[in-house]
Simulated assay, not measured.
Amino acid sequence: MNDPDLSLRLIASAGAVLQLAVTALALATYLMLERVLTSLLRGRLVSGRRHRRDHLPRIGGLLPMLAVIGAMAASLFVLVLWSFARSWWFPSLLPQRWDLMRITDALAMGAPVLTATLALAVAAAMLATALTLWLLEARSAHRMPLGTRLKVLVFLPLLLPQISFLFGLQLLFLVVDFSGSFFSVLLAHLVFVFPYAVLALSDPWAQLDPRFEKAAASIGASRGRIFWQIRLPLLLRPVLVTFAVAAAVSVGQYLPTLLIGAGRIVTVTTESVALASGGNRPAAALYALLQLLIPLAGFVLAALIPAALHRNRRAMHLQEG
């Protein structure tokens, strides 16, 4: 795909189609095995037998998770150390010299990268959340749940490898002269952000007590008024969490940004990958931390805003225990 010889793009296209076929075969195999095992184990599942002494399997499942969490925590600790390190040579356990101004200098130099990342994340999250609200509201107005076909279309980008159809999307944008712009990258991000937004908001939307809507409709409230004054305030926390999830997914998009942006749109993620292959470990660690802190800021705001707005409404608080 990146070779200057344009004829090799035909081989890249064939490889993308082959990858798509392998993925389809894997999904078909999984579905077939699921049906076979379900039919074989149905009698065992409905017999009523229970294995009460399952503490050893539970411990066996807990230990790998603790190991993964420990490795993640250690990785974050090392990233923080490298972000503040000026020199760190083997075999020293900690950096020999520290530079606390490195972060401010790197942020000042990388302000355009950070601005592009935030702009893409906020725009993609706003569009994905608005489209999800429109879809769910339209389905609710017609008393129709999300059908199987619609779910397949929405979640298909999550099941297929990105490279299998991103190459076709890149060629399409090149043909219509729409490649390498902010809006083309935004559309590419939306392909992957929208399914996560639907996945995050569908269940809270379906679980909202319908009696609120019926009570408002019984006194003559329109659907628009019900949505803006009843449903949306009650679902403020899930909507903000959906926005934060969508923004986090947008921040983590590497291939769509690189291919559709044609190298002109630089984000924290693309810069992190570029720095990871270089020798500047402090800068790579700093950008990796930024890649984590930007989504974290979104989730923190999603938790603080409803808590501040609903501080005098006990029923709107999260229940503990």
Rank of each mutant, 00 (worst) to 15 (best):
N280L: 03
L146C: 01
P233V: 13
A246F: 01
R313T: 09
A141Y: 13
A130W: 06
D99R: 08
P145D: 03
L187D: 02
A128T: 00
L199I: 08
H310M: 10
A123D: 02
L37F: 05
L76H: 02
S181D: 05
R139W: 11
L66G: 10
V251T: 08
L235E: 07
L190I: 05
R313F: 14
G180K: 00
M101W: 13
L236R: 07
S7P: 05
L240C: 11
D203H: 15
L41S: 14
D203L: 15
R314H: 11
Q96D: 06
A244E: 07
S184R: 01
A119K: 08
R143S: 12
P204I: 00
A200V: 12
V176R: 09
V36H: 07
L234F: 15
R86L: 12
A141K: 09
A24Y: 08
L107C: 08
Q170D: 01
A16E: 02
L153F: 09
T267W: 08
R281G: 01
L232E: 03
M109P: 04
L201C: 05
R231Q: 10
L136N: 00
L118C: 04
W228K: 14
L18Q: 04
L318W: 04
Q319A: 11
E137R: 13
F192H: 03
A308E: 10
M144W: 04
S87C: 13
S87F: 13
F84Q: 15
V80L: 14
F194K: 01
H51A: 15
L289Q: 08
D54K: 14
P91C: 02
F77P: 13
W98T: 02
W89F: 14
A141D: 05
Q319N: 11
G110W: 00
L232Y: 03
L232V: 07
L66N: 03
L286N: 04
L293R: 09
H142I: 15
L40R: 09
T115A: 12
L62D: 04
Q207R: 07
A216S: 11
L27D: 04
G279W: 07
L286Q: 02
A14W: 13
Q162E: 12
V78S: 15
L296N: 04
G61S: 07
D54E: 14
L120V: 08
R35Q: 12
G224A: 00
L10S: 09
G110E: 02
Q229R: 14
L258H: 15
